[in-house]
Amino acid sequence: MITVDDVRRLALTLPRTSEHLIRDRVKFRVGSIVYVAFSRDETVMGFAFPKEERDALIASEPDRFHLPEESSLRFNWVHAWTSALDEEEMYELVTEAWRMVVPKKVAAARLGSP
């Protein structure tokens, strides 16, 4: 199980990241682009994820991952139950979500080539 604090410890080390509390929801973003957000009760973590790959992710592990609400389907976004994620998987999901929203040069400097 992961927590907001676990994600915070990672996210705030990623260049250009800032944390915001918006309508009682913790969000991490680069500029105005949110790449990780939590539900108010912190049981769900939403994260940037390629639209063309999300159906396969959800189908592979439907007990861990699910689609966001219908109004958010137009975005590159997936939800995961925080209770179903471990720290290693959280690290991968958060860093890949961050990679989607920063310039390639910034991501490569931090993480190397994808």
Score class of each variant (00 low, 15 high):
residue 37 A to L: 13
residue 102 V to F: 08
residue 107 A to C: 03
residue 90 M to I: 10
residue 86 D to Q: 10
residue 34 V to H: 01
residue 30 V to I: 05
residue 89 E to K: 14
residue 39 S to R: 07
residue 108 A to P: 01
residue 41 D to N: 10
residue 95 T to D: 08
residue 29 R to Q: 05
residue 100 M to C: 12
residue 105 K to P: 02
residue 96 E to T: 15
residue 106 V to Q: 04
residue 84 A to P: 02
residue 67 L to R: 07
residue 84 A to V: 01
residue 61 E to R: 15
residue 31 G to N: 08
residue 55 D to G: 10
residue 69 E to P: 08
residue 82 T to K: 03
residue 59 A to L: 10
residue 29 R to G: 01
residue 25 R to E: 09
residue 105 K to E: 12
residue 65 F to E: 03
residue 74 R to T: 02
residue 98 W to Q: 07
residue 69 E to K: 06
residue 90 M to D: 08
residue 39 S to W: 08
residue 92 E to H: 14
residue 85 L to K: 02
residue 53 E to H: 10
residue 29 R to P: 01
residue 24 D to Q: 14
residue 77 W to S: 00
residue 48 A to Q: 06
residue 106 V to K: 03
residue 93 L to N: 07
residue 109 A to R: 10
residue 88 E to K: 12
residue 88 E to D: 15
residue 21 L to D: 14
residue 67 L to P: 04
residue 99 R to I: 08
residue 35 Y to R: 10
residue 41 D to F: 05
residue 56 A to D: 15
residue 101 V to P: 01
residue 53 E to C: 06
residue 58 I to L: 04
residue 63 D to P: 05
residue 70 E to R: 06
residue 103 P to A: 11
residue 71 S to Q: 11
residue 67 L to D: 05
residue 94 V to H: 02
residue 84 A to F: 01
residue 30 V to G: 00
residue 91 Y to A: 15
residue 95 T to F: 06
residue 29 R to V: 02
residue 109 A to P: 07
residue 98 W to S: 06
residue 52 E to V: 07
residue 42 E to R: 12
residue 68 P to G: 04
residue 106 V to N: 05
residue 62 P to Q: 11
residue 43 T to M: 06
residue 93 L to P: 03
residue 74 R to N: 05
residue 71 S to T: 11
residue 82 T to F: 01
residue 95 T to I: 09
residue 46 G to V: 00
residue 27 K to P: 09
residue 34 V to Q: 01
residue 88 E to T: 13
